[in-house]
Design a protein around this nucleic acid. Structure first.
Lengths: 163, 163
DNA sequence: GCTATAATGTTATATTATAACATAACATTA
DNA sequence: TAATGTTATGTTATAATATAACATTATAGC
């Protein structure tokens, strides 16, 4: 059984984001139910905000929105929610940008490689076994026991090359 | 002509760091001479400090040392020197740690993969063509034109697994 | 209801990084 | 060698990112 290699693709022109978002949120709710965890209104709202687009979102941008919606939001409010969402595999942090993106396979354990278009800002997420395995074999050969991978690739997506 | 795949290895027990450091500094001086750039005392000192060990160094740790050596150092002092050193390929930034490591092939153009031991903190730098090419072929297949790679792998180095 | 735990609220501060403008050092050449 | 342009550094201030520590509230299980 082969895993799907593209977790979150670059979107086609006819991408229906409301549908996309709805199915992600439903999936996250389901995972939480299964795990006996609480996807509280706050966590749910932060997940929605991260998934507002397919572009990375900054913690303080989320904070600003939360503050505009309801008094009392402060940095820990956001970072705790993000921590929870990351732990459950609902969002990923892009280390090279200090920003967060939604995960296209919420809750499923996988490694990720991110393609980040520096023109339009859109992020695609891969879970490519070949890359994972090659890195595994290379690190093994050096006697290194890898436990956490950060792979972030910046460049130009297809649409932006044409434009 | 095959490139050397291991730019900076995990050190053996008999690693002579003063020799290692000296040859790196000499190489950097040479590269600057060739390029008509100035490896000023400040830049040289920052490069030395980054290379004090094979572990990542924080900008503000460098700042503290500079301040203890001579009044007047402030954040821009350090960040400008680091920017120069990065541009010339003398140091790399580890995005996942907000920290800096010396480059084992100063000034030579290459892509890097970093292995970071979370036990001892030591960083090894690879320039593995296979990894680079695999990622290239994968991104090409998606119509993505990659221009900048961030590959940082955390885990346990050989020595730390034995201990 | 009581209690343990998890979640959120609250205040303060730590850490990382840059903007913007001023001065100094240095090289080129008029 | 004085004038000029350029690069590097000094200086002040602040922006951006993130966490510590402790208080309170909500919730679930008993």
């Amino acid at each position: 059984m082969k895993e799907k290699q593209i977790v979150t693709p670059f979107r086609s022109d006819d991408h229906q984001h409301s549908t996309c978002l709805a199915s992600i949120l439903t999936a996250a709710e389901q995972v939480c139910r299964q795990r006996g965890l609480k996807l509280t209104p706050l966590r749910y709202r932060v997940l929605e905000l991260v998934w507002k687009t397919h572009e990375p979102v900054k913690a303080y941008d989320i904070l600003q929105i939360l503050q505009s919606e309801k008094k009392g939001a402060v940095p820990p409010t956001v970072y705790r929610a993000l921590d929870f969402l990351q732990q459950q595999g609902f969002v990923h942090k892009l280390e090279s940008m200090n920003a967060y993106v939604g995960c296209g396979a919420p809750g499923q354990h996988h490694t990720s490689q991110f393609l980040i278009c520096h023109q339009c800002g859109v992020v695609a997420e891969l879970d490519d076994d070949d890359i994972g395995q090659l890195i595994g074999s290379k690190t093994d050969a050096l006697g290194f026991k890898a436990s956490q991978l950060t792979i972030e690739i910046k460049g130009l997506c297809g649409s932006c090359q044409q434009a």
